[in-house]
């Protein structure tokens, strides 16, 4: 790891010894860090989540949820009154959850680990990466302290303790959302409610599909986030593509992979979308209307005047929360279908 040659070149005396010693120290420390991996695998029902067995015996009574998708999923399962704390909302919560949301402590970004412990949760649900050493600690660490954890299965890190490191996330589909709902429902004893929510989501999507059955039109859609120099777009393997296709459209950025990849204005002109959805983020009080100034700027920009979406003025604000894989995804399909086929959806 530390080359004794480079050390010698840097003039360090006894470079071989130094290299060996420092490597030894690192290995020993790593070994110490790993020693907390023994999960309690004794009796009692468990659920598998990202390769980790989560004890499922008792229903958790004090839930901490981090990231918007996890927060709303907990609310959707009717567990809003068991929430002791939430963190990291991307946008305003759905109106039906607003009251319950007010009651729990809210943190704009992840609180310190000590703060989390102060809230004495027995379950931590995370939508993105919370279980890293510099956030809440690994899931094994928390398990030792008697705190159960649940990670959205579409965002499993490669190993416990690692973060959301993928620059190109894997495929995320609606099925992942359903799986998480059902798993979390089973863990928290709200299996029935979970089934209801899943059924509702499926029926919403089926309803949209029905109405789209007769139309052959598939408008080209782009979901973008504006920046100073170019745009960040949602690409092919993001759930946004799924949502767009279910809503009867086509993702104009199909040849770009990833979530929020940077492209230039010329690329946008070349792709020529017919409908543009402009993302808004990040804060507990940010909603679609926050995209209005950006939409106005784009409409006035002479460089973009040739794009179909700008000519027809088909730009809409779209919350980041709705574009992410969550309980909102069925609603997202409906909303996008409304933008793409306004004649079919009132």
């Amino acid at each position: 790891m530390v080359s004794s040659v480079s050390l010698a070149r840097a003039g360090v005396p006894f470079p071989g010894a130094v290299a060996a010693l420092s490597t030894l120290v690192l290995l020993v420390s790593a070994g110490c860090a790993d020693s907390g991996q023994d999960a309690a695998s004794d009796a009692g029902p468990t659920l598998d989540n990202c390769g980790i067995e989560v004890p499922a015996g008792e229903e958790p009574q004090r839930i901490f949820a981090s990231y918007h998708n996890a927060i709303e999923m907990v609310h959707a399962l009717g567990l809003g009154d068991r929430l002791v704390g939430t963190a990291f909302l991307d946008n305003t919560v759905l109106p039906e959850y607003a009251e319950a949301q007010e009651k729990a402590e809210y943190y704009e970004s992840l609180p310190s680990k000590e703060e989390l412990l102060r809230l004495k949760p027995d379950l931590v649900v995370s939508g993105y990466g919370s279980f890293t050493d510099d956030a809440f600690g690994s899931r094994a660490d928390l398990a030792e302290l008697g705190i159960r954890t649940w990670q959205f299965s579409s965002m499993c890190p490669a190993e416990d303790g690692l973060g959301q490191a993928d620059l190109v996330p894997g495929e995320v589909t609606m099925d992942d959302v359903y799986a998480d709902l059902e798993g979390l429902g089973e863990l928290t004893g709200t299996g029935e409610r979970a089934d209801e929510v899943v059924a509702e989501m499926r029926s919403t999507i089926d309803g949209v599909q029905e109405r789209l059955a007769d139309t052959a039109e598939r408008p080209r859609v782009g979901i973008i986030s504006t920046g100073d120099d170019g745009y960040r777009v949602l690409g092919s393997n993001d759930i946004a593509t799924d949502v767009i296709e279910l809503a009867g459209g086509e993702n104009v950025f199909d040849d770009i992979s990833g979530r929020l990849t940077q492209v230039g204005a010329e690329e946008l002109i070349a792709c020529d979308p017919e409908v543009l959805l402009v993302l808004t983020c990040c804060g507990a009080d940010v909603d679609e209307s926050d995209a209005d100034p950006e939409i106005t700027e784009m409409l006035d920009d002479p460089a973009l005047a040739g794009i179909s979406a700008i000519e027809d003025e088909r730009l809409h604000g779209f919350t980041f929360a709705t574009s992410s894989a969550s309980v909102r995804s069925a609603e997202a399909v409906e909303q996008v279908a409304g933008f793409l086929h306004p004649d079919l959806f009132e």
């Binding site: 690192l26 050493d133 190993e159 973060g163 490191a165 620059l167």
Partner: peptide, 11 residues
């Protein structure tokens, strides 16, 4: 290490 490899302590 943090942005590409997941950012555990050792990494």
């Amino acid at each position: 290490a943090i942005t590409v490899l997941g950012g555990s302590t050792m990494f």
